[in-house]
Design a protein around this nucleic acid. Structure first.
Lengths: 201, 201
DNA sequence: GCCTTGATGTTGACATTGTCTACTTATCAT
DNA sequence: ATGATAAGTAGACAATGTCAACATCAAGGC
């Protein structure tokens, strides 16, 4: 119900909301959250410094929109990967997403947004998580440690993504492999315990 | 070589640098990085708004000091846990640390500090990481997947810590367990593969 | 006992930013 | 046509990070 009128008198931009999210998204990916100034977004969108407030109550609301968009992308990527690559593929897709959109990923999980206050964000995030844990739980329906193992799996990919993003993993650990190969090997280096766990060293 | 003169004339505070790190640390833990205003720190330390610039070239430098302090704490906790609890104990200690100092942990890994530019931070962080991966690698010295497994282990605890911090893990997953017990179970739900990995589902 | 000197603090200024209030203009339903 | 309302603009304000210029104290050489 929008995206119709364009470039008339420049008053009433047409679909400013979307335009703001778009340019803000670009700025986010390029410079990070800290450098995402509301006024600069307005400037680049060609509107006055206050126009964004007609669409977002505050800066945080714009950030929330960006994060929500990110969760949608991530969810879509997960669904696609689930078909093709199974569980392992989902894991690789998760890491891939994070490395492809590092700043966005940081925004989604960085904790600067109070999720509770942004309905849409909360919903889309929950939906994505459910898709994730659903796929994980479906693998070992009722074994005792299944739920724990699914949390572990998620933790693993999440942590790996963040450590790679932060360049915290010594280049030596790569051992000459390309990043995708490295990720696959790391994810392959563990096995899940489904039955009652026996203590291990 | 300080902490000597105190409350003389209030000019020349005595050891402002340490005082700033201290009050900034409290503010950090309480309100998060975003809310850590340089001027407010100065105010609470009882000095003028510009005094901090005699000790930190910019805001980021103060943040770096806080992060470095955090890495020292984490390193110490790791060493202590290594003696008592072995590898599993180190993992639990890692998560514990993150949950005990969430904002500090976020600062340490949040990516808002350009580590390369802060010598002390870089060094202490590297030292901590080396202690970590050293302990991990010592476990399976030269097996093919050992290095990968150690990365996986670190990723696992790191991710678990962050997901717990962000309240991203559904309360249902806890299943009534206390948090420490939950962490232990999750960490126990995987097993590392040391030999050549065979493909798994 | 002074006086220079460097480190440490202070004052004042400036550009930027997020956000508030009031005003203006375009759009759409009647 | 018209009038309500959504969308944009203009201007103001307090805060903040940071810069430059000035002030004060501690110490050491004379």
């Amino acid at each position: 119900m929008s995206t119709s009128r364009r470039k008339k008198h420049a008053y009433h931009h047409g679909d400013l909301q979307a335009a703001l999210v778009l340019t803000a998204g670009k700025m986010l990916e390029k410079e990070g959250v800290e450098a995402l100034k509301l006024r600069e977004v307005a400037r680049q969108a060609g509107v006055s410094h206050n126009a964004p407030y007609r669409h977002f109550t505050r800066r945080e609301a714009l950030l929330a929109a960006l994060a929500a968009e990110g969760f949608e992308w991530l969810g879509a990527a997960q669904r696609k990967a689930a078909e093709a690559g199974g569980l392992r593929g989902m894991g690789e897709a998760y890491v891939s997403f994070a490395l492809a959109h590092p700043q966005r990923f940081r925004l989604m999980f960085g904790g600067q947004i109070r999720i509770a206050r942004h309905v849409r964000l909360r919903e889309v995030a929950m939906r994505t998580f459910e898709g994730l844990s659903g796929a994980l739980a479906a693998r070992a329906p009722e074994a005792h440690g299944a739920r724990d193992a699914s949390v572990a799996a998620w933790s693993l990919v999440h942590g790996l993504a963040l450590l790679l993003m932060g360049e915290r993993i010594a280049p030596a650990a790569l051992g000459g492999r390309k990043r995708d190969a490295f990720v696959r090997d790391v994810l392959s280096s563990i096995r899940f315990v489904v039955g009652p766990a026996q203590p291990a060293a």
